[in-house]
């Protein structure tokens, strides 16, 4: 056989072998996709941002390595408080490693907490711009976490992170509607619970958020009762909410009887409900506290001047306060 004929046969053999393996490779690709083992396509801007060398390297299964390197770069930007660079870098990182919770969590944390605080306290920025930048950073952090959740719908911690952010008393003023933020926070915590891998506090946190949504008191009470059934040893906030939510359901009931049915004793009832009354920045419901407090104070010998109800309360959170 001549050299030319040989190469001809080889080409035909390669094509025939290609035809043989094509269906198998297609089915294997589907299996790998089903098992979430295939890397997703990089976005165009990611390729542009990481440069040709990194793009080529990322093809060969080294995406997480590049993400690790970029994470180090993001740390430098964070140390230098270059927030736009931090944001850009994390955008690239999560495109390279979309299933690593840490990057979503950290990228969001930088925007919603670190950058937001930086802008709030940056004296070189005019006050109005400062507030705007603070708000934008928090919303960016929220959007980043929501993107993380879309990429990792089974990860309870990302839901928990979103729930915490949306119910954070220091951030609530950034959201156009606090009620909506609390509602979303509740949904996020419940989504975490539904994954089956959430930590124990997630359901309680969902209650704390739901209890703060006007009009959802009945649902919140049902959730509180469910939590009570599951765990008889409850933290003070749950006990306080059980009182206020029960009172909201039936304002005509005897408040001392209600308090006795929830708290271990009246002293504890006084302490917990007093704290809840003063936590104005947390927007917790206070139904029935003003009615029961004078009765409890009278019984515990608290003078009228020292009454919790006379303490000057802080106004709900606004970013200009506390500085």
């Amino acid at each position: 056989m001549t050299q030319g004929k040989k190469y001809g046969v080889l080409v035909l053999a390669i094509l025939a072998a290609g035809g043989l393996r094509l269906p198998f490779e297609r089915s294997l690709t589907n299996d790998l996709q089903a098992a979430n083992l295939l890397p997703r396509k990089l976005e165009m801007r990611t390729g542009e941002k990481i440069g040709q060398t990194f793009s080529a390297v990322s093809l060969g299964g080294l995406r997480t390595l590049i993400a690790t390197l970029l994470n180090l770069r993001a740390f430098s930007f964070f140390s230098e408080q270059k927030w736009v660079d931090v944001e850009d870098t994390f955008d690239v990182i999560v495109d390279l490693a979309p299933r690593t919770r840490y990057y979503w969590d950290t990228g969001s944390w930088h925007q919603a907490y670190n950058a937001a605080s930086y802008y709030l306290y940056e004296s070189e920025i005019p006050p109005l711009r400062r507030k705007l930048a603070w708000r934008e950073s928090i919303l960016k952090g929220q959007a980043f976490l929501e993107r993380g959740i879309r990429n990792n719908p089974d990860d309870p911690k990302l839901y928990e992170g979103l729930g915490v952010l949306l119910s954070d008393s220091n951030k609530i003023a950034a959201f156009s509607s606090p009620n909506e933020a609390y509602e979303k926070s509740y949904e996020a915590f419940m989504a975490a619970v539904e994954t089956g891998n959430a930590r124990g506090y997630a359901k309680r946190a969902a209650l704390y958020s739901l209890a703060r949504v006007p009009g959802r008191e009945m649902d919140a009470l049902a959730l509180a009762n469910e939590i009570r059934k599951e765990n008889p040893r409850l933290p003070p906030t749950v006990l306080g909410l059980l009182y206020t939510l029960n009172y909201h359901e039936d304002p005509a009931q005897d408040v001392l009887t209600l308090a006795d049915s929830i708290f271990p004793n009246r002293k504890i009832a006084y302490e917990i409900l007093g704290n809840q009354w003063m936590r104005t920045r947390d927007y917790f419901p206070v139904d029935g506290i003003a009615r029961v407090m004078p009765l409890l104070e009278k019984e515990l010998g608290v003078s009228e001047e020292d009454s919790v109800l006379k303490v000057k309360l802080l106004s709900p959170m606004n970013p200009d306060e506390g500085r």
């Binding site: 390669i14 294997l28 690709t29 098992a35 083992l37 295939l38 890397p39 060969g60 299964g61 690593t100």
Partner: peptide, 22 residues
């Protein structure tokens, strides 16, 4: 598709590092 091998099939390391089960 017929001539070149599919090397992408073997790119499972990133996903495994990210915690996926193989």
């Amino acid at each position: 598709s017929l001539v070149l091998p599919d090397f992408q099939l073997f790119n499972v390391i990133d996903s495994v590092i990210e915690g996926q089960v193989m």
